[in-house]
Design a protein around this nucleic acid. Structure first.
Lengths: 228, 228
DNA sequence: GTCGCAACAATTGTATACAATTCGGTCGAC
DNA sequence: GTCGACCGAATTGTATACAATTGTTGCGAC
């Protein structure tokens, strides 16, 4: 819990801070998020902490158990499958629309994202790289000019981060940044067909790089294995 | 506000009660939802009212203006377009999946929904009919066994209800229940192609039955016309 | 008469106090 | 020795009190 070194942060919401920590894998799935603890860390009362936790719970990033507290969510394999199926359904058409609409500034913004992603990988900060990788997808949705779908994708990306934390198989570095490069190229060429196709295969790659065979999420204790 | 006749309701969340009221057009877009008022109506303190309002705000059913309060959302024409574009993207494939998976019980459940919808129309309760019409779509997502997408569709349906309240053009009765019948038939036949196709045209019909020409949401006062 | 300013009323934002529930441990019975 | 129940600490759920912000209304100056 104490890896969050934000004390009395000026004006960044604590929900955003927690979401970022989850994105970057600094908060592991299953971590208990006590209201008093968070309140002390952020220098606010439980009231505002609860509001943040409820927001995160609605985004399925934390699980709220009645009278038990908030925990970083641990998506089941079924949930993991559903999330990636949803992404496979929504993101390719969005990438197509983005490719057809993208302006020069949009392309530049995407390039900046990829650069930042590479920088994070160079720096050995895998968590930040993962987060920036997600931002790349979100930026595409933004370019497509569909804020409603973008919000949905945002949620799916956040949950994907949890899923990756739980089920990531390949221990080698993120080999997918190449896919982002290709996507960028397709969008720069306004090639909607190729962008859609690339996004589809990119998501398939991501999905198949997970180990979703186990029906249970490797419980560390008997209690976890049997809890409802 | 006082058209909500639920006083000290035993165990139905007040967020659900408000959502239902919005669904059924008993709460018009723009209606102010004062915390004290709601607290008194439901017999709870502002604490729980605020939690409910935040949940509804996250679903885009109410708009939270800082230090000003909560209001039933008034989707812009752009938002309306986006919502129906999102539905057009997501629902047809879902209908296909549902058609391929539907069991006899699923078909029976859908029939029950249609019957209830007809009964509401007979009774002249247009609000309830609209709500049940939405439930039909949600049930299809449930049959498709995609809870993540179902949750998204749920949100889109709820927002559609607001959009219909604002932009509905045809003053005659809901002529669309025929479309639901056809969809039901396609699903009973496990005809995925036809189900997807029917859903697409059904959503197009719905979309085109709206009046989204005006760039502004028919403001009743200069204040509304100029407010950000 | 209109514009600007100021004080007020009303409502939300936040903190704190209290009640309710759960979990863990310990004692006791079999 | 094991199982069960009771009790206590800890944490969440809810209510209430207080602070801060906003919109309005009234007064006064130009």
């Amino acid at each position: 819990m104490d890896q969050i070194n934000i004390e009395k942060s000026p004006r960044v919401g604590i929900a955003e801070a927690l979401a970022l920590a989850i994105h970057e894998h600094r908060l592991a799935p299953g971590t208990k998020l006590g209201e008093d603890d968070l309140g002390e860390i952020f220098g606010v009362s439980r009231t505002v902490v609860r509001a943040a936790l409820q927001k995160l719970a609605h985004d399925r990033l934390v699980e709220l158990k009645r009278n038990r507290g908030a925990f970083v969510a641990k998506p089941s394999v079924r949930e993991a499958r559903e999330v990636f199926e949803a992404r496979a359904l929504v993101e390719p058409p969005t990438a197509r629309a983005a490719a057809e609409r993208a302006t020069a500034e949009d392309i530049a913004a995407l390039e900046k994202h990829i650069d930042a992603e590479h920088a994070a990988i160079e720096a050995g900060n895998a968590g930040a790289a993962l987060y920036l990788s997600g931002l790349f997808h979100l930026e595409i949705a933004r370019i497509a000019d569909q804020t409603t779908i973008a919000a949905f994708i945002d949620q799916l990306i956040a949950r994907s981060s949890l899923i990756i934390a739980l089920y990531w198989q390949r221990r080698n570095a993120l080999c997918e940044s190449h896919a982002h490069h290709e996507l960028l190229k397709a969008m720069a060429d306004h090639d909607g067909d190729r962008a859609e196709e690339l996004m589809t295969s990119h998501l398939v790659d991501l999905h198949t790089s997970l180990d979703l065979r186990n029906t249970q999420t490797a419980p560390r204790s008997l209690r976890e294995a049997l809890e409802v």
